[in-house]
Computed example of a mutant assay.
Amino acid sequence: MEIRRRLTEFMLGALMVTAVVLTAVAVGTSWGGWYWLFGAAIGLCLTAIALARRRKPFVAATFGLVMAMAAVVIARLAGFPREPGPAGILALAVLVGMVVRRSSYSKVVAVTAGALTVVLMAFVAGQPLGGEVNVVAALNALGLAGALATGLALRLADRTRKETEERVRRDERLALARELHDMAAHHLTGLVVQTQSARILARKRPGELDESLDAIENAGSDALTAIRRVVGLLRDDTDPFARPVPEQVRELVQRFELHGPPVRLDVPEEVGPWAPEVAGAVQRVVQESLTNIARHAPRASEVDVTVRQDDAGVHVRIADDGPPPGRPPRRGGYGLIGMRERVEALGGTLRAGPRDGSGWLVDATLPVADLMPAIDSG
């Protein structure tokens, strides 16, 4: 993600500098002399502000708009080519668009008012010279209107994505609540009923009390196991208590290979005592990753699945060599949100993204030292 962001910023900067150079050449050819110098300086300054916008976008946008207003006035009084030129318009569009996308509504209103002021000033400054200068005003209007529209569209998309992520997390919690009810509630209800029966037996038939207490102990153990199972499952259908993790992973790989590429599997024959939460998370990460490969990487020729444990914790790594054709790979969707939430809830880390060269990588680390299953003291 960081590499992609830096590449985008580099391409944007290159585009703005190219616009500055082309505008300077055009002004130098048509106006002659040093008339191009003022526009080039304004364009480079606005480009620098636009590229430094991420830390304080509202401040950067305000500074850029004020500079554009000053450039309009200076160009009008000095008889320079009208401003902002193409490079300045592009830089202002980036600044305004980012504020509209990410800032509060009050800041959006303020920046929008500033952008309209720039457009109005460019139009008024161009009136005495006729149609040629009106083109500059029209370009300013189109550029800033495009920035507003793009910023609003991206703001709406961000809001929709955030609401969808929240809904996915809410559904995850609701699923867990249903699992708790279905798997544990009846155990606890039985425990209460048997406890009430034991109190009656203690008064009327004390000789049968030991048998009743044994039943209560068994019911309590079943309830504890059910609750721990739900915490480990977190809505999965596979029970981490039923079979060891290596066996679960091998079964997932075998099912995947029925319709997918071959898998190079590296898992230990046996693993140390893991908490059920860790076992469920490992199974979920492998399952979701293989599902994403089958869905989004149809041209993958090989998949690597590795599960190992060391002093740092449990490491799960799933990699493939085939991104889908067409646009850049984007896998996981909201399944990735569930994986990440599960892993980070256990104090672990999860990294998912494109590999160097081609393919996709999911790399998760889960601690085990603080999540060992408790040993019943009897």
Score class of each variant (00 low, 15 high):
Gly39Ala: 13
Ala24Tyr: 00
Ala24Gln: 02
Ala61Pro: 06
Ala60Asp: 10
Ala41Pro: 08
Trp31Tyr: 14
Gly33Met: 09
Gly43Ile: 01
Cys45Tyr: 10
Gly33Ala: 15
Val25Asn: 00
Gly33Asn: 11
Met16Lys: 02
Ala48Ile: 03
Gly43Cys: 07
Thr29Met: 08
Ala50His: 04
Gly43Val: 03
Val59Thr: 12
Ala61Leu: 12
Phe38Leu: 11
Ile49Phe: 04
Thr23Ile: 05
Trp31Thr: 12
Ala26Gln: 09
Ala40Arg: 04
Leu51Cys: 04
Val59Trp: 08
Ala26Ser: 14
Ala60Cys: 11
Trp34Ser: 11
Arg54Ala: 15
Val59Asp: 07
Val25Ala: 11
Ala50Glu: 06
Ala26Lys: 08
Thr62Glu: 11
Phe58Gln: 08
Ile42Gln: 08
Leu37Ile: 10
Trp31Asn: 08
Val59Arg: 12
Lys56Glu: 10
Leu46Asn: 06
Arg55Leu: 13
Ala19Met: 11
Gly28Met: 13
Ala48Cys: 06
Ala60Gln: 13
Ala40Asn: 01
Ala61Trp: 05
Gly43Met: 06
Val20Asn: 02
Phe38Asn: 06
Ala26His: 09
Thr18Glu: 15
Ser30Ile: 06
Ala26Asn: 12
Thr62Met: 13
Met16Ser: 06
Gly33Phe: 08
Ala48Val: 14
Gly39Arg: 01
Thr23Ala: 03
Trp31Gly: 03
Val20Arg: 00
Val17Tyr: 03
Met16Asn: 04
Ala41Trp: 13
Ala60Trp: 03
Met16Thr: 01
Lys56Gly: 02
Leu44Thr: 02
Trp36Gln: 00
Ala60Thr: 11
Leu44Arg: 05
Thr18Lys: 09
Ala60Tyr: 04
Trp36Glu: 02
Val59Asn: 12
Leu46Gly: 03
Trp31Ala: 14
Lys56Pro: 00
Thr47Glu: 09
Leu44Pro: 00
Ile49Arg: 03
Val59Cys: 03
Ala61Asp: 07
Leu37His: 02
Ala52Gly: 13
Ala26Leu: 15
Ile42His: 08
Ala40Met: 00
Gly43Trp: 04
Ile49Leu: 15
Leu44Phe: 05
Leu22His: 03
Phe38Cys: 01
Gly33Arg: 13
Ala41Gly: 13
Gly28Ser: 14
Ala50Asn: 03
Arg55Val: 12
Gly28Gln: 09
Gly28Thr: 07
Ile49Ser: 01
Leu46Ser: 01
Arg55Thr: 11
Val20Ser: 01
Arg54Trp: 07
Arg53Lys: 14
Val17Thr: 10
Ala61Lys: 07
Phe38Glu: 07
Leu22Thr: 14
Ala48Phe: 06
Ala19Lys: 00
Arg53Glu: 15
Trp34Tyr: 14
